[in-house]
Design a binder for these strands. Structure first.
Length: 560
RNA sequence: CGGGGCGUAGCGCAGUCUGGUUAGCGCACCUGCCUUGGGAGCAGGGGGCCGGAGGUUCGAAUCCUCUCGCCCCGACCA
């Protein structure tokens, strides 16, 4: 393609609304433009990237036997009502009525519709297993679109669904996806982790997420470099760092107007980890006390798994529940349920004395109070790995894909059943699997850029090579550029010719910014000595070769 | 949905506190000359309902009220 014919509106300055590196570079490189919050126009260059990513995805999905379909993005409400998600999901679903007043919604995902199809077309165990996928638009009325293309209200997703006769079948389909996903991200040039994840509203049992480490990520993963343990911090377990706990006598101490862990620890000359924080929670079952070591935070998701939906007690409720105001609550002598973090099973601590202006020290779990012990704390950097005990690292990550074992939640709700060998009707066992192609692109930029711009992995670059004839007025340069262009194009190399009447500096800056992996630089002086340069964007290496050797050199370089 | 910030030319910004000629700067854009290996130089030029509505005032980008939009933090996130 000729640069002069393409819409590549690069920007010298950074638009003020962008913060994430990938967002800035996509805007500056002319890859995307914003229509409204969470709505983006994909410009020609970006579409080329997306097509390459989608091609890789299709190849890998096809290779595990998945079949591509295409589903509507406008859905009748009934299907969603049958699974209950019409009611469970709130503002995040775009809803509308058609002209007859019938309730409709826009597709947030396609479990319902895929299962609807299965319910109509699958009758027998002989029809199973099946895997169906699509690369289709999803719409979600996000509370907070952000980070450019990373969280948008309309986006494309590769979503696939597996239909099996039993759990063994599901496990096989799940495994096929897990492996295909690794190949996809690997081919896209990404660094990524596979982490255990929380199935959340998908309502399944087992789930994994594929995470690309990046400062722009909204999620965090706990990673053990030693043994490979990897989990979303939403559920990551960890062994708290062990600390010095002084064994003192069990006694009240006067702590006037000292309420927070910070205040009391400063007052008593102790560390935060010497304390037990006592939190009052209000759950469906009633009030619950949650105990957590002073240097840690209560992990709300973990807590929810134990006591169900809950909220923190309001200030004005606390005294009614535990008989003392916030700041002086301790675990001793309450009748309500007490849950405590595993870390607190042993040791000697300070906590509230359940009377105003007093704390108690020398407090020993088991001796002075009883509690149910669970993993309740947020995993921290350098906590011990739950598997091997070595220190964990916490990394910010972008979720680029996920896989869920759904089970029969959707098939039962929508009567997607089959007859087994014995003629018994059974619900189909399902899995669902998603990939965000635009997030792959954004992650690739996050992981591959420098101060000058994007450095695309060759596999997903919009062009493999850009030819830069530096002097448009020099006929020899022009001719050489054209010749090289033709020879590359004839060999199916995706090549961009910067034929614009621009100064050398502008061409270099734009080529670097848009991130084409290889630059063929043609200068009139070099050409007189029968030399052009092949510059490698990533390493900044420059190879001087004769024009007639450009083709083979380039072919060689893009293979690696 | 809670908290914070910002809307002035295509982009980046100043001016707003303390109201007062014709609203300004850099980049981009157009014309000409010049230049051609890292976003050149000179000269000339076009482009603004100062987010919108209402109000205060002799007079509003500037003060007041309402409203819309965008960004950031949090909640939320199949």
């Amino acid at each position: 393609m000729k640069y002069s014919k393409l819409l590549i509106p690069t920007l010298k300055e950074t638009p003020s609304e962008a913060e994430a590196v990938s967002h800035i570079l996509m805007l500056r490189g002319g890859y995307v433009r914003q229509l409204a919050a969470g709505l983006y126009v994909y410009m020609p260059l970006f579409l080329r990237v997306m097509k390459k990513i989608n091609k890789i995805i299709r190849q890998e999905m096809d290779s595990i036997g998945a079949q591509e379909v295409s589903m509507p993005v406008l859905h009748p409400a009934e299907v969603w009502q049958k699974t209950g998600r019409w009611y469970d999901i709130k503002d995040e679903m775009f809803r509308l009525k058609d002209r007859t007043g019938r309730d409709m919604c826009l597709a947030m995902t396609h479990e319902e519709i895929m299962t609807w199809l299965a319910s109509r077309e699958i009758r027998s165990y002989r029809d199973l297993p099946q895997m169906w996928y699509q690369i289709q638009t999803k719409l979600r009325d996000e509370a907070r679109p952000k980070s450019g293309i990373l969280r948008t209200r309309e986006f494309i997703m590769k979503d696939s669904y597996s239909f099996d006769a039993d759990t063994d079948g599901l496990n096989k389909s799940y495994e096929l996806h897990a492996e295909a996903y690794k190949r996809i991200y690997g081919r896209c040039g990404l660094k990524f982790y596979v982490v255990e994840s929380d199935p959340g509203m998908m309502g399944g049992a087992t789930a994994h997420e594929y995470m690309a480490p990046s400062a722009a990520g909204e999620d965090a993963a706990a990673i053990c470099p030693a043994c490979g343990y990897a989990a979303n911090v939403e559920l990551a377990e960890s062994v708290s760092q062990s600390v010095e706990l002084a064994d003192t006598a069990f006694e009240d101490v006067f702590t006037p107007e000292k309420r927070t862990v910070e205040e009391v620890s400063a007052f008593l000359g102790l560390k935060a980890y010497n304390f037990i924080k006592t939190l009052v929670l209000v759950a469906k079952e009633g009030s619950v006390l949650a105990l957590i070591r002073g240097d840690q935070e209560l992990h709300e998701k973990k807590t929810e798994r134990i006591i169900g939906d809950f909220r923190h007690a309001r200030k004005d409720e606390i005294e009614g529940i535990v008989g003392v105001e916030a700041g002086f609550i301790g675990p001793v002598g309450h009748k309500i349920r007490i849950i405590a973090d595993n870390t607190l099973k042993s040791g000697t601590y300070v906590s509230g004395a359940n009377k105003k202006d007093y704390h108690v020290r020398g407090l020993k779990p088991g001796l002075h109070f009883a509690a149910g012990y669970y993993d309740l704390h947020m995993a921290h950097e350098n906590d011990g790995c739950p598997l091997c005990g070595k220190p964990l690292t916490i990394e910010k990550v972008i979720e680029i894909g996920n896989i869920f074992k759904l089970g029969t939640k959707y098939s039962e709700a929508l009567s997607a059943v089959y007859l087994d060998k014995d003629g018994v009707e059974k619900p189909i066992v399902m899995g669902s699997y998603g990939i965000g192609p635009a997030r792959i692109a954004a992650s690739a930029i996050e992981q591959n850029h420098d101060e000058n711009g994007i450095i695309w992995p060759v596999s997903i670059a919009p062009f493999s090579v850009v030819i830069l004839p530096l002097n448009v007025n020099d006929a020899a340069s022009q001719q050489a550029a054209e010749d090289i262009y033709s020879s590359l194009a004839a060999n199916s190399v995706e090549v961009l010719l910067d034929d614009r009447d621009e100064r050398a500096g502008i061409k270099f800056k734009d080529a670097d910014l848009i991130g084409i992996p290889l630059q063929v630089v043609i200068g009139s002086k070099g050409l007189k000595e029968n030399v052009v340069e092949i510059k490698i964007r990533k390493s900044k290496e420059s190879l001087k070769v004769a024009p007639e050797r450009v083709l083979e050199t380039v072919m060689d370089l893009i293979k690696n």
